[in-house]
Every structure is written in C-alpha cells, then in structure tokens.
Amino acid sequence: MSDYYDRSHLPNFANIGEGNPELADKFFAYYGAVFDEGALSKREKALIALAVAHAIQCPYCIDAYSKESLQQGSDLEQMTEAVHVATAIRGGASLIHGLQMIDRTNQLSM
C-alpha cells in the first residue's frame, strides 16, 4: 500500500465483507434502506450526504455523493450551498465553544 487513500477502494467497498460477511451484509442492507425514497427524496438525501461528507472530510464520500447529487438532479449551485451548510455548522460548532472560553476566561480573570 503506497497511499492511505486508494481510488479503487470505492467501487470495491463490498470487499469489507471479507473479514465478517454477516456484519457487512447488515450494514449494506441498512445503508441501502437509508437512501431509499422516503419522507425525504433521494435528491435531498444525496445533498445531506454530500454535506456530511465535507464535514467528516471523506474523499470517498465526496466522490460518490458529488456524482449522486448530479444524478439526482442537483446542480453545482445547489451542491455548493449544501457544502456551505456543512461549513456553517462546523464553523458554528467551533465558534460557540468561544462562549465556554469567555466563561472560563472571566472565571480566571480579575
């Protein structure tokens, strides 16, 4: 293995079943059910997945859900807005901890 990430892993994700087929089967069945059309459309779910992919910074997921979002009918502007939602939540999550910093600073300061 020359790199930590390998493009060929994405289409071969099912190989994760090599060590434990039963758990892999359960995971993929669950995964498929999650992305089925439901109260949310497949397009909405793909955009959520795309945003989460950026939040967790998973290159495999970004690859897969960029394509899936396009395929489900989103365009670049809509996908970019989804990424900004992830960015805002990530940024907000950092920033709101600033209140903890302020509380602690006030506690420690004269």
Binding site: E37, S41, K42, R43, K67, L70, Q71, Q72, G73, D75
Partner: peptide, 17 residues
Amino acid sequence: NPVGAFLSGNQTQLETE
C-alpha cells in the same frame, strides 16, 4: 439528458421537482 458523465435520475421524482 444528464449534463455530464452520469446517468439520468428518477424520472418521476425529477418531474415533481
């Protein structure tokens, strides 16, 4: 037609949108 190298989405769902 898809605008790129991917397949068409679900026709019924896209029509609603």
